[in-house]
């Protein structure tokens, strides 16, 4: 058990949890930020992806005690009202089916475009293959990423 202070979506929260609690469960159970999803708990599915200092991480595999003065962004904080380039592209393409995997997909895609604004097909596959979608929306996810990239360049 320990007392922790965490900056999520620009807001600082203080709380007490077991020191091995993964960031995922702090976000969900403690901070009630339910946009970040649980899918596997072992870093295999990407549903729990968040940004830590701008880079994509699997929040299910990061114990709270290992986070030091870092800034965390979840899907709820990616933009005001879902207006990030990636979120807009997702709406234009109308990507989601059940939608459950999509916060993770969007967070991974946003981090990819931050790093490589004009990704190749291979870049997209490499970045996105860690995110599972059981509804099989991969075709649309790819289309939305390409659209977002196009919107960035213009």
């Amino acid at each position: 058990m320990g007392k922790y202070s965490l900056t999520v979506n620009k807001k600082t929260h203080t709380f007490e949890v077991a020191s091995d609690t993964p960031l995922l469960w702090v976000l969900r159970d403690t901070l009630k930020l339910y946009g970040t999803k649980y899918g596997c708990g072992i870093g295999q599915c990407g549903a729990c992806t968040v940004h830590i200092d701008g880079l994509p991480y699997r929040s299910c595999c990061i114990p709270i005690e290992s986070i030091k003065d870092q800034s965390i962004v979840t899907i709820e904080g990616l933009s005001e009202n879902g207006t990030h380039t990636v979120q807009l592209a997702w709406q234009v393409v109308d990507v989601p089916q059940c939608g459950y995997c999509q916060s993770g997909q969007i967070m991974t895609a946003a981090a990819l475009l931050d790093r490589i604004p004009q990704p190749t097909e291979a870049d997209i596959n490499r970045a996105m293959k860690g995110n599972i979608c059981r509804c099989g929306t991969y075709v649309r996810i790819k289309e939305a990423i390409k659209l977002a990239a196009k919107n960035i360049s213009s």
Partner: peptide
């Protein structure tokens, strides 16, 4: 367009 999409992309 799917009515759930805006909520999904905002994590809501």
């Amino acid at each position: 367009k799917n009515r759930i999409t805006p909520e999904v992309v905002a994590g809501k």
